[in-house]
Amino acid sequence: MQYKRKISEQIYALVILLSIISCVAIYFAQQTGQYENNFVLQQILFFIVGLGICFLISKSNITFVRKHVFWFYGGAIILLLGIVLKVPFTQEVNGATRWYRLAGFSLQPSELVKGIFVFVMAHFAAKYEKNSVKQFFVLASLGLPVLLLLYKQPDLGTTIVYFVTAFTILLVANKSWKWIVGITTTAVLSVSFFLFLLLNHMEWLEMLGFKKYQFARIFTWLDPASDPDGAYQVNLSLRAIGSGMLTGRNGNVYIPESHTDMIISSIGNQFGFIGVSCLLIVFILFIKVLIEAGLTMKKSFSTYLFAGFAMCFAFNIFENIAMSIGLMPLTGIPLPFISYGGSSILGSMICTGIMLAVIRSDSELE
């Protein structure tokens, strides 16, 4: 009981530390003069609201939520479906419809429903853990609608995060090595087939709904010299990070979206290799705590949930940083707890609140 209380305290402490890092990073990012708004003040307000919601969720009755999990899943589907159908109050930015906008505030459902998605996957993985076949088809039936709705926004980067998260829960929960090998082999073959189509039959992928700008980002990533305009943002990001050297530089390098998706480049520019390393250490500690929490849980549901959240955050962090330094194609995905944005902060805080509630619920068995 005391050990799990210690884990909860560590999660709280790391989240607050990341919140402070975020506000400092955004302060320096907006010194380039490209923004008029005071994003630091707004981010502080987002964190205050987010921590409040996190605290309330942490006190929720997990048994009650699991009994009514379909209502939460249905609500998530409705939120995502409204974006795809472009109902009133949806907002289109740069050709993508991913937000609701009402009374001057924007909400991105794909960030808000991450916690619900992981909770639902973990719940049904535990419910059918004794039947590998049924478990696979139930998780696939629940996961595919969410993935398709995310993809149709279009939001390929977030879709990949959700897919990797669900895939991790499925592997951790599955008790059959035959199914684990089969699922893994199928995933590898599917990725290989996609790459084959990308290089040889791009028109087939377009028929499946992939967009030309997505192909352009991939080819620009593979060969930046082929499209200097497409590689412009990543090149600026690399220049900013490189110019920060060991301890950072005095002054700022212009980077588009330096307070949101590309915030790691601003941190690298201002605080150098040491600053980025410190941030990565905090992230690693956060993921380590989640993994340790999952290993100490008594309920299989709790273990699956922490496995899902650990991978969700880890892959999200990797994808954001990798795209900023040219290791992955450019995607519009925020850095958890660090990038500016109410939806991103609120989504991360919802996930944190769920984890804290599950720790408390699991401790009741002891």
Rank of each mutant, 00 (worst) to 15 (best):
P154V: 04
S343T: 04
F315E: 03
G182A: 15
V87W: 10
G182R: 07
L85G: 04
V234R: 06
E292K: 13
N200D: 11
G104E: 08
R360A: 14
I16K: 00
D261Y: 03
Y27S: 08
F313R: 00
G294P: 09
M328P: 03
V120W: 06
P109G: 10
C278H: 08
P88Y: 10
Y232E: 13
T158G: 10
A225I: 12
V191Q: 00
F136G: 07
R239W: 06
L238W: 01
Y232Q: 12
F47T: 04
A357G: 12
V161Q: 13
V172F: 14
A293S: 15
V65E: 10
I7W: 07
I20A: 13
I241E: 10
W99M: 11
F136N: 08
F271H: 06
R101I: 14
I241Y: 11
D229H: 06
S243K: 08
I26D: 04
F55A: 13
I21G: 05
I11P: 01
H68I: 11
M1F: 05
E364I: 09
I359M: 08
V234F: 01
L149M: 15
P224V: 02
T90G: 04
K212I: 03
E364H: 05
I160Y: 04
G75M: 05
P224Y: 05
I218A: 09
P329V: 04
K67T: 01
L365M: 12
W177F: 10
S237F: 00
L56D: 13
K127T: 14
V120I: 14
S265M: 07
S60E: 12
Y3S: 13
G104N: 04
K152N: 13
Q270I: 00
V146L: 15
A187N: 08
I26N: 01
L327R: 10
I53T: 11
L199V: 09
E36L: 09
C278L: 15
T303F: 12
L80I: 09
H259R: 04
I78K: 00
S363I: 03
G182I: 08
E92H: 10
L195C: 13
I354D: 01
N61P: 02
G248Q: 07
S363P: 00
L144K: 12
E111S: 03
S8G: 09
V161M: 11
I241R: 12
M323A: 11
A293W: 05
E364G: 02
G308L: 02
L208A: 15
L107Y: 05
V172D: 06
L41V: 15
F47C: 07
F105G: 08
P109T: 09
L327P: 02
